[in-house]
Simulated scan of single mutants.
Amino acid sequence: MKNKMLWSDETKIEQFGLNAKCHVWRKPGTIPTVNHGGGSIMLWESFSATGTGRLVRIEGKMNGVKYKEILDENLLQSAQDLRLGQRYTFQQDNDPKHTAKTS
């Protein structure tokens, strides 16, 4: 049955910031600087025991409406790409936006 499971999750990747670790080699006496403030991206991905489905860049802030749009546009195609067949179980974590009441 584990081959009939499809999971999804979101992640934020930061170039610099609280969630980012950066290791660099500098000459002694060099003062580290960051120009232009770094940056980050939010991603949504689906995956199963057989591989990864679609990877989607999330523009703006993630909320229940945007999450539903991502599922509507990508979940079925991911299941087809992963050859899960007509009947599979979709699993997500308990993030509030995953159970938001949207129209």
Rank of each mutant, 00 (worst) to 15 (best):
M1K: 13
M1T: 11
K2F: 14
N3T: 10
M5I: 05
W7H: 14
D9W: 02
E10H: 11
E10K: 12
T11K: 15
T11H: 04
K12S: 08
I13E: 08
E14V: 06
Q15D: 09
F16M: 10
G17Y: 12
G17T: 06
L18Y: 00
N19I: 01
A20Q: 02
K21R: 13
K21W: 03
R26F: 02
R26Q: 13
K27P: 00
G29N: 10
I31G: 00
I31S: 04
P32E: 07
V34T: 11
H36F: 10
G37R: 04
G38E: 05
G38R: 06
G39T: 11
S40Q: 05
S40K: 07
M42T: 14
L43D: 01
S46P: 06
S46K: 02
S48Y: 06
S48E: 05
T50Q: 13
T50F: 11
T50L: 14
R54I: 03
L55H: 09
E59C: 05
E59N: 14
G60A: 05
K61P: 00
K61N: 10
K61S: 13
K61Q: 11
M62P: 05
K66E: 10
K66C: 03
Y67T: 04
Y67H: 15
K68W: 00
K68Y: 03
E69N: 09
E69Q: 15
D72F: 00
L75K: 07
S78G: 07
A79I: 07
D81S: 04
R83D: 12
L84S: 01
G85L: 06
Q86G: 03
T89S: 10
F90Y: 15
D93L: 05
D93Y: 07
D93V: 01
D95G: 07
K97Q: 03
K101R: 14
S103R: 15
S103T: 11
